[in-house]
Design a protein around this nucleic acid. Structure first.
Lengths: 110, 110
DNA sequence: GAGCGTGGTTACCGATTGGATACCTTGGTA
DNA sequence: TACCAAGGTATCCAATCGGTAACCACGCTC
């Protein structure tokens, strides 16, 4: 889903309080996801970083963690209202990056 | 101009390829600025970081550095077209942060 | 009872970031 | 002559970031 060099890596903005936060948020766009479900689109993330990223997004009120009482372990993560509202400017950035993709590459090469 | 805790520091996004890039860009919004002029609004930046930030913004095509042939040394920095186009999504972020300032503080405290 | 999946944690390590401080060169000014 | 401003560099250090790898508890299934 996210390439090794995706538009956001060319931003002069590291999109992430940590490197992954932005991608994690975008992965939650479609509704609640489990820990292991997040590891699929975020193929290159280590468990450590995913936990770290989720914890800090939770602490700051962007993501809600829900642990179910199921006998088998089940935890989901979903966007809070705050988190969802942030998707809009985030998308603006991503769109910008896609629109200027070529210019960005040109500039970086020379 | 930029408080110690300004909206962007509460984003889950470090707004800056480095910490300062976003602020530097916004300082250039009003037209060309000299090195020393940038140090005023960016009160807490060290010369090293300002140089570093400017160099990387220049390398990546967001900022143009102009050295004048004046006998006295004179250098200005200004936004390129690419840099200017980035202001829009950047402002979207800043606006968002201001709108959600209280929520951000609340979330961070608890 | 052996192994598997879920949802992590821990330890370790190297690379990167960012801050403080001192210093430098060129030219102008008193 | 001494000093000042502009536009930086150089050096050092501490903290943070991010990756690898190993491990772990719980419940389930074979």
């Amino acid at each position: 889903m996210f390439e090794e060099i995706c538009p956001s890596t060319l931003l002069p903005f590291k999109v992430g309080g940590d490197k992954w936060a932005g991608m994690v948020l975008r992965c939650l766009e479609g509704g609640p996801r489990r820990y292991s479900e997040l590891r699929v689109p975020l193929a290159r993330i280590s468990p450590k970083m995913l936990t770290q990223s989720l914890r800090s997004l939770e602490r700051d009120g962007f993501v809600r963690r829900t642990e179910y009482a199921d006998p088998a372990r089940r935890v989901t993560y979903e966007l809070t209202g705050l988190g969802r509202s942030l998707l809009e400017p985030l998308r603006a950035f991503c769109d910008w990056a896609e629109d200027h993709w070529d210019e960005l590459l040109d500039a970086r090469e020379s």
